[in-house]
Design a protein around this nucleic acid. Structure first.
Lengths: 158, 158
DNA sequence: CGTGAAAAAGCGGCGTC
DNA sequence: GACGCCGCTTTTTCACG
C-alpha cells in the first residue's frame, strides 16, 4: 500500500476533468481551474509519475468488437479457509473472461463481472469454473440487458 | 440498439492501442499499423462518431483520492414500467458515487458498483437512493474486502 | 507559479488511385 | 470511397524570470 502525496484542490479539479475527458486541452483545464496551462501540465505529469493517474485509455463499446454480453455472478463457497480463498482468487484472476473479481462480505463470497461473446461461452465457463470446482456451493447469474453506466472496460480482446 | 459498421483489421489494431494508451500519437499508431497519420485520425474520428469509442478518460487510483471502499449492490424494484426503469437509470447514472450500473435479468433488476470514502457516506447514499425512493423493493449490499481483479479503476468522485 | 518561444501533434484540403 | 502528401493551427513542452 503506497501512501500518495497529498492532492490539493487544484489537483482534484484537474483529475475530475481528466476522468471525464482526458483529451481536454491543458489551456481549457487551466481556465476551468484558474491555472496556467503549463502549471496544469506539471501537475498532470507529477500525478502520472506518482501513480495517481494510472493510465489514459479509450473506452470502447464491447458490442462494437463482438464481446457484447456482460454478466454478474455472485459466488458462494463451501469452505472459507485461507488457502482455499487464495486458490479461488488465483483462479478467478487468471481467467481472461473475468473482467473484475472482488472478494466480499455479505451473502456471497465473490462477485464477478464477466464479459463474453455468447451465452455458450458463458455456459462453458460456468462448467469449468463452478461445476468443476467442488468448493463452490452455489452461484447466481445476472445478465446485463443494459449497461447504464460503465466503468472503464478492461481492454477488450479483439 | 445500433448496429455498428464493420471494423476492419486496421480499426481493431488502432483500438487495441488506444485502449492501452490513448495518448499515443497518430504518427506512432500509423507506424504500428502501417497507415499514414491522417488515415489513423480519420478512422479514430469515425469510430468516435459511431460510438465505438465511447470516451477517453484518465484512470485514477481511488486510494489516491481517498475513495477506497468498493460496494456492490443489487437493487430490486417494485414496478418495472418503462418510465420507471428509465427514471431509475437516469438517477443511477447521474450519481457520482455509482461507478457502474447495469440493468439486469435475474433475481435483481439493477446491479451497482459504488465507490465511497466511508461507510457513513454509503449509508447516506442508501438513504437518498433507496429509502428515499418508493419504487425500491429491496437491496442487498456486498462490501468488497479485496479487489482481486479490477477491470480498471474508476471515475472516482472527488 | 506565469510568460513566451520552440517543437510536436492534431486537423483539413487537395490530388490520386 | 479511402489513401497519402502538404501546410496551417492548436497543443504540448521547456527554459527562464
Amino acid at each position: 500500500m503506497i501512501a500518495f502525496p497529498r492532492l490539493d484542490e487544484f489537483d482534484r479539479a484537474i483529475l475530475e476533468i481528466l476522468q471525464r475527458d482526458n483529451t481536454t486541452s491543458q489551456r481549457t483545464i487551466g481556465e476551468a481551474v484558474n491555472l496556467s496551462a503549463p502549471a496544469v501540465q506539471r501537475r498532470i505529469k507529477r500525478m502520472t509519475e506518482d501513480g495517481v493517474i494510472r493510465a489514459n485509455v479509450a473506452v470502447v463499446d464491447p458490442s462494437a468488437v463482438g464481446r457484447s454480453i456482460t454478466i454478474f455472478v455472485e459466488v458462494e463457497v463451501i469452505s472459507e479457509t485461507a488457502a482455499q480463498i487464495e486458490e479461488a482468487k488465483r483462479q478467478f484472476a487468471s481467467t481472461p473472461e473475468i473482467q473484475q473479481c472482488y472478494y466480499v462480505t455479505g451473502e456471497a463470497d465473490f462477485v464477478l463481472v464477466i464479459v463474453v461473446a455468447s451465452m455458450n461461452d458463458y455456459e462453458a465457463l460456468t462448467r469449468r469454473l463452478f461445476f468443476g470446482n467442488n468448493n463452490v456451493k452455489k452461484f447466481r447469474t445476472f445478465v446485463a440487458m443494459d449497461r447504464v453506466k460503465v466503468g472503464m472496460e478492461v481492454p477488450t480482446r479483439m
